[in-house]
Amino acid sequence: MLVRGERCLFANLGFSVSSGELLVLEGRNGSGKTSLLKTIVGILEPDDGELRWNGQPVRRHRQAFLASAAWLSHRTGLKPDLTAIENLRFESALRPTRVRDLEEALERLGVLRLRKLPVRALSAGQQRRVSLARMLLASAPLWLMDEPFTNLDREGRALVEELVCEHVGSGGLCIMAAHQDVSIDVPTTRLRLQ
């Protein structure tokens, strides 16, 4: 259960996601999709209830859980004054990352040629691609994505779908909040928030 102000956003909510599965959170604006994601990742504290990761309560094994989760917020989480590479380099000191070239992640998202520009000089869609590259860099099995398609062109949307498909296909988990129809070719559960 999560209460924000005087409004109870959700109560009696129960779900589980297993390896190789995508969970799509649906609902209109303000239905609590982002709040639910933030509760899962630990930015918000639930007023009641428990979250378990591999059968262990997350509350008591916070570090281990956070090491296996990557969070894509609706804000980019990038420093506008630093370049894409500098941003990714900082990220690789914060969490377990795949030992491979930072540039490889940027190339995958098609923003490698912009690596030496400060992030503020990039368009909103390009900035989103850089924050997706950061997600790709983290070797986290659980992806939490809040509206990943925002600001992306058709090509970018296809790329996100491809990345999620690959990630879930190789045994990862993904929880995604989306207000538009998401159809990705992986086992998908849908959760509609009222």
Partner: peptide, 8 residues
């Protein structure tokens, strides 16, 4: 937010 959710 990214600092808050980092395992560090």
């Amino acid at each position: 937010e990214q600092l808050l959710v980092s395992p560090q």
